[in-house]
Design a protein around this nucleic acid. Structure first.
Lengths: 188, 188
DNA sequence: CGAACGATGTCAGTGACTGTCATCGACAGT
DNA sequence: ACTGTCGATGACAGTCACTGACATCGTTCG
């Protein structure tokens, strides 16, 4: 018999998403989130460094997936192909959870602070991809640009997938947009 | 004879950059910035919506320059070329002010909140470019991807230019990285 | 001259976030 | 069973970013 209800962190995440959805991010106080989770404000800040981060708990495991997939790509694969494989692996994670993902995204899009946080998560992802590519022996400007291109494609594909109500195939969208990016730069 | 010293806004910007450089962003309070500028904290918040924004006063005029340059590109220009022209126009603005630009960039890079703010400025830039391209009749996924690619190239070029101590030619860097991006996506 | 204006100051709040100490069940060693 | 350590939590006071309301006082316009 443990002293407290289990999964405090998960309860905080759920309470936060609910309240941000019901009243909006700014109109929700951390004390309210904690109360709904049966905890105190101080405990919230032991689990999350700030009020935004509670929405981004999953982003580190997503980044791990990206990095792992790129690492495991065959040595012969071109950088862009290694990274595209990672995008598709990530897409698979989203494809089944449209409900949760889109609710969360609606909250983020509605608030500038949360959009900022999302952008820095994507930048961190791009940095991790860059490092991973370098470890595969990819050269300097190439690694960085490949990672930036991949994240840009993922970002646009993800937004479109959400707009379409999650009915499209995210992996397919990624492939289409990558081809489009190729066409765009070809003229330069 | 006016009642107050002129250019309160500019004094706040300079005081902030100085203090952020001397003690770091987090160790500086808004009250200290205001005091160095000969004003009060409340007045700071009349000129800037928050403590970060004081470093980004110039970003709206940069965005205007981008948009204007793209608008004025010849109708026949491909989207990527129209946007590249804007990148080069912006580069010219930076080229002469390496000192100020690099000091400011050092402060931003050293702090996560400021990096977040920079990222959302770049995202805003990307959005403005997307809209401008659409107004030129560029289609949906193309406009967005062109803008994202352009901003990515600009970001990487800018960082390299700073790393090199401002001695390189930013316009030249942009052209090189654009070619590199083309090579990267070509394999996909 | 007097009224409206505009930039600033003053002051009292709210809420995010932090440091510190207390609490108390679980668990290990004796 | 006794006891000491540990880990998650609570309680509480404090700092600072940011906001709303109202006062001040040169400038400017009629």
């Amino acid at each position: 018999m443990s002293r407290w209800e289990p999964n405090a962190r998960g309860r905080l995440e759920q309470a936060a998403l609910e309240l941000y959805t019901e009243r909006g991010y700014e109109q929700t106080t951390v004390a309210e989130i904690a109360k709904r989770a049966g905890l105190t404000e101080r405990t919230f800040f032991r689990h999350f460094p700030d009020k935004r981060e509670v929405l981004f708990a999953g982003s580190s495991s997503l980044q791990d997936l990206f990095v792992r997939t790129v690492s495991e790509a065959p040595d012969a694969a071109a950088p862009i192909d290694a990274v595209t494989g990672a995008l598709e692996a990530a897409a698979a994670q989203f494809q089944d959870r449209f409900d949760h993902v889109s609710r969360r995204q609606a909250v983020i899009v509605a608030n500038a602070e949360l959009r900022e946080r999302e952008l820095i998560k994507l930048a961190s992802l791009s940095g991790a991809l860059t490092d991973t590519l370098r470890r595969r022996g990819v050269g300097e400007p190439t690694a960085r640009l490949t990672a930036e291109a991949a994240v840009a494609v993922f970002k646009v594909a993800f937004e479109r997938w959400i707009e379409e109500g999650g009915e499209g195939d995210l992996t397919h969208l990624i492939r289409e947009l990558l081809a489009e990016l190729k066409a765009v730069t070809a003229g330069a």
